Structures are given as C-alpha cells and as structure tokens.
Simulated scan of single mutants.
Amino acid sequence: MTAVLIGLGSALPEREVGNDELAARLGVTPEWIERRTGIRSRRFADATTPTSGLAAEAARAALADAAADPSEVDAFLVATYTPDHQIPATAPLAAARLGLNCPAFDVNAACSGFVYALATAAGLIATGARRVLVAGAETASTLTDPADRTVHPLFGDGAGAVLLRAGDPGEEGAILSLDLGADGTGAASLAAPGSASRARLGTGTERPRPDPATYYMAMDGREVFLQAVAHMSASSRAALDRAGLKPSEVDRICGHQANVRILRAVADELGADHDRLLVDLDRVGNTGAASIPLALDRARGEGRLTPGHTVLLTAFGGGFTWGSALLRWPGTAQHPRSAT
C-alpha cells in the first residue's frame, strides 16, 4: 500500500515578533535581518504553549481537514528537536490532548524531521497501518541565545501536520518516492552541545554542570549553507529519479524554510524557476521540522497548490541530515485554512 495525504493543518503561537523588535535589541537594522535571511517576522511561544500543545493543535486541524475521527488513527508521529522534556516523549503528550489511543513517538532528525517522519509513516502504512498522523512541531526560539544576532533572528515556533491513509500509487495525494540521508561528521557545524545527556556525563556520582551558553544552538553559517544546497539538490534528484520524473515535471518545490537564498540556490541547481518555490519563512522564520507543512498550508490557502500538482519536498538539518519526498497534490481538502 502507498501513503496518501488526505488532511493538512497548522498552528502558530499568538505572539508575532517583527524584525524591528529584534533589531533594536541586537544592534542591527531590520533591513539587515531581512537581507540576510528573507525573514520579516516570526512567532514566539509563551510558557502556556509547549511543543506538545502546538503539535496537538496542528494535528487536530489535519484531522478536521480530512473529516477523520481520532479513533481512526493507527499511529501518531511528532517530528521535533525541541521536545517538552527528554522524558517523556512529546508525541504521547500531544496524543493525550487529542484523545488518541494508538502508538505515539517522536522523530528527531532536526530540520529534516518532517520528511523522516513521512518516510516512517509510509513504512507503517506499507506494513498494515490504515491511517497515520504526522506532525512537525518546534519551539525553536527556546534553543537560541537572545543575544546572538546571527542565530536568534532566524528561528520561530509553530507546527504543521498531515493525515495519511493507505491507498494506491495512482491516487492524487500519493507519496511517489522518498530519499533520506545523513552524515554525522558535520554534526559540530550546527549543534546545541550542552542541551542533553552528553554534557552531563561524569565519573561515578559526579555530574558536571554545563556552561549555560552551550544550551543554545551554535552554527557555522557558511558551512551549513553549502551543505544544505548540495544535499537538498542531490536528494531531490534522487527522489525524482526513483519516481521516474525530471525537474521540469515538478510544479511546486517546498523546501525547508531556513533561508530564502538556500531555497533559490536549490531551485537553480535543479534548473527550476523561482516562481515554483513555496516560501513561508518571511512570516514565520525557520520553524525546524514544522516548516514544510506550514509552508504547504499557506500555499494551499493562497491557491498555489492545484489537485494533481507534482510537489517536491526537500529538507536539510543538523546531524547532518537531509531528505526529499515527491507527491501528487490531493483533490480533497482544498478549502483555504488560516494558519493561526
């Protein structure tokens, strides 16, 4: 059986943070931020809006979009690198909010997490699951140093989700092909080294206290840019080859929303016009594993996705990880939905 997309939803925190607000604090200009990134604003979650809450809200919207009941869901996956806790996982917490009674687990492949979770869901469907709910959700702002002008303006919080069902390869909404990859030798170029267990490893009963500065993401921007363009382009070609398609046959490209220059460079590598790109980072920034479904929901609401469109999804994230997926856009659930 093939995984077929039948529902889409999204969720964003209420607080909108424009470049003006950040620029005043960071000693730069709003234009400097937008010129480097293409971002004009982003959303920041407050203490009442955890990652699990955003995941549940987006997943609830995807279920409603497909007119599906929570009792019909056989598994729930949450792609995130900003979980509520190390233990428990975020997916069971979000599942409890939805009243789900099914397996629920997290997928952490950083900003490639949504594509990795799609591939995992497709595997579950191939082995007998009927409907699988997939959310990408982040409170990425919590992992950035508010005083770091090179990283803090890039990230925002939000969630997007899709509902997949078992179907046939010829259906609209079907996932046509997938490609995944990773290279851990580049891990140090994008990392928050003090945020988990390795920083607390000690001898015997001693537990070191990590420097609080290492809790935050640090990034080699140039290296990440070069690797992202190279791997997203190569992965996109691999997914196209597996589906027997050419770049010219792709109607829309929905890349991970990290930087508009990366998106344009990938399009250039594929020989695709920039008007095929779906761009959402201007209003939400880099939302990690949430960025692709958020961009899809915005594009749908703006009428940029038509039933039967061939859509390429491609992402790159810390790890390094990368992945791509091809699908036919479904003819159902085409009504505009506000991503709020």
Rank of each mutant, 00 (worst) to 15 (best):
D211K: 03
D179R: 04
L201K: 07
A188S: 14
A187Y: 05
A239V: 06
E249G: 10
S189M: 12
A228H: 09
A196W: 14
F225W: 13
K246V: 07
L190Q: 08
L245Y: 08
E206V: 14
Q227D: 12
T203M: 13
T214V: 05
A239F: 08
A230D: 13
G184V: 02
D179A: 15
A230M: 02
S248G: 15
A213I: 01
S197Q: 11
R242G: 12
A188H: 15
L201F: 10
D220V: 10
T203D: 09
L245T: 04
S197C: 03
D211L: 06
P247M: 11
M232P: 07
A187C: 04
P193N: 07
S235V: 07
S197P: 03
D211N: 15
R222H: 14
G244Q: 10
A234F: 00
L226Y: 02
P247D: 10
P208H: 04
D251S: 13
L180S: 01
D241T: 13
A213Y: 02
S197F: 14
Q227K: 13
G184E: 04
R198Y: 07
R222A: 15
G194R: 01
Q227I: 00
P193G: 08
D251V: 03
G194H: 00
A187D: 02
S248H: 03
A228F: 06
M217R: 00
R242N: 08
L190K: 01
A239T: 09
D241G: 12
Y216T: 04
G181T: 00
F225Y: 15
R198C: 05
S233A: 15
V250H: 00
K246Y: 05
L180V: 03
A182P: 02
R200D: 01
S195M: 11
A199K: 07
E249H: 01
L226K: 13
A239L: 10
T185F: 04
K246F: 02
G202A: 05
S235F: 08
V250F: 07
M232F: 11
G186I: 01
A234H: 01
D183E: 09
F225G: 09
M219H: 11
R198V: 14
S197H: 08
D211M: 04
G194I: 06
K246L: 14
E206K: 11
A228V: 13
P212I: 06
T214L: 15
G204C: 06
L190T: 06
E206F: 13
G184Y: 03
D251G: 15
R200T: 09
R209F: 07
G221N: 10
L180W: 01
A188I: 05
Q227H: 12
S197T: 05
S197I: 09
T205C: 06
V229N: 07
V224I: 15
L226P: 04
P208Q: 06
A199N: 03
A234M: 02
G204M: 08
F225K: 09
E206G: 09
L190N: 00
A187I: 02
A230S: 11
G181V: 06
Y216S: 07
P247C: 11
G221M: 11
L180T: 01
L240W: 10
G181I: 01
T205Y: 08
